[in-house]
Design a protein around this nucleic acid. Sequence first.
RNA 1: GUCUCCAUCGUCUAGGGGUCAGGACUCAGCUCUUUCAAGGCUGCGACACGGGUUCAAAUCCCGUUGGAGACGCCA
Length: 473
Amino acid sequence: MENVRVRIAPSPTGYLHVGTARTALYNYLFAKKHNGVFILRIEDTDKARSSDEMTEIIQEGLNWLGIEWDEGPFHQSDYFSHYREFIPELEKTGKVYKCFCTKEELAGRREQAIKNKIAWKYDRKCLALSESEVKEKIENGNSFVYRIEIPEGKTSFDDLVHGNIERDNAEIEDFVLFRSDQSPIYNFAVVIDDSRMNITHVIRGDDHISNTFKQIHIYKLLNKEPPKFGHMPLILDENKKKLSKRSGTVSVLAFRDKGLLPEAFINFIALIGWNPGNDLEYFTMNEMTELFSLERVTKKGGVFDTKKLEWMNSKYITNCDNNRLYGLLKPLYEKESIILDNFEKEHIFRIFDSVKEKARYVNEFPQLTKFYFKDITEYEEKGMKKFINPERIDYLKDIIESLKGINEFSEKAIEGIYRDYAEKKQLKGADVIHPSRLALTGSTVGPSLFELMSILGKEIVLDRLTKFAQSAI
RNA sequence: GUCUCCAUCGUCUAGGGGUCAGGACUCAGCUCUUUCAAGGCUGCGACACGGGUUCAAAUCCCGUUGGAGACGCCA
């Protein structure tokens, strides 16, 4: 494939939508795969709803995900005054006409049609206007929009994922091209932009299929060659509805803030609506680029399964480099008044390693590892009832004495003490381990006891254990 | 309502005339184990329905049903 040029054209609505992110990903992958160009274009025709800040948020989201664009961001609004330059050319075709129907009139007739159970479509009232009538209305200062006259026949295109899609033109209304203020309507602006930017493949969501028919008519009117179109299945919520704000979290950045790793998110989202054709489902962006093809995009809408996303994230966390985690987690720990820089990096890394495979979200780390940094003030009640009794406190006291004798406070040495003691006293390991865990972490769950003791260090361990033994009962 | 798209375990999906219909997430159980996870193993679990074509249909065709999307001077 030559000179592939693709784009995403999000409208800046305040956040980067999950669906937009996946569209961006597929476009990006497609471009990379074919050594093409991926363009970011901000669809900010609707001035009232757009701002620079929103545009930045979109870029921030894309950056976070590692989706890089080659050109842009371009702003549709920068080109705003140019669209109307097409009006004379359009009028010359004779396939565009002025419509003087007001919004109110239209709304009334539409309502009536619905009442009569007739499918509403613009009724071409103004197409019937004579030249003099048009002139008169203009002179009277009536405002008008431009509509396209859709010819009879059928419109079809060869969709890259669905195959041939056809629609009777009778189903397509004479839609508006320019508003009464001469600003272009979305479909027109898109065609002009895509055409100007030499977009070769328009890869977007299924919800644009009906727009595609309209856009094809605009291409025809302008005598331009339309690009290839590929419509991919929508991402659905748990109710199988198109993923929307109502569905819950749809903002990509919100997932970041929740503690997701971008690779996990990308990996997960790629798999809704595409697969490499084998059992592989854990891969990097580069691997994905190799594997990707439009032919393997599925047709059925896919549900966004948070459980699977969490599983994916936990896998990525387990494999995440400690240095990177450190950077990610530093601010999170600071919120808990824990300053990571006050400790040896090696020490911190051991702490990370001890909980890595438990975390589903990066943000869980501070809570999971709090006991390493702070004294224990509260002990889990259930655990106290279950594991603590006078006898066990006596065991603990014995163990404290033995622990004192260790020079190198290693996992192995510590385990030796516990095992020997349990054996000597004919106890189960659990009888001595659980109370210690409780004393050291305040909890019944956590990393391996011997590992966490070794990380904690002899001094703190003896201190906490002793305090506990003295005050627990 | 009209048009368009879609239809394999609860979810993501593989398979596209002959398969024990495979994998992953979830869930359950077992195992490992000092706990929780992780890991390993096992299990539950699907071709929407009805016709056709064919020796043979989850797979091809038609229909039905179901679901979704689009129907703005929004994008």
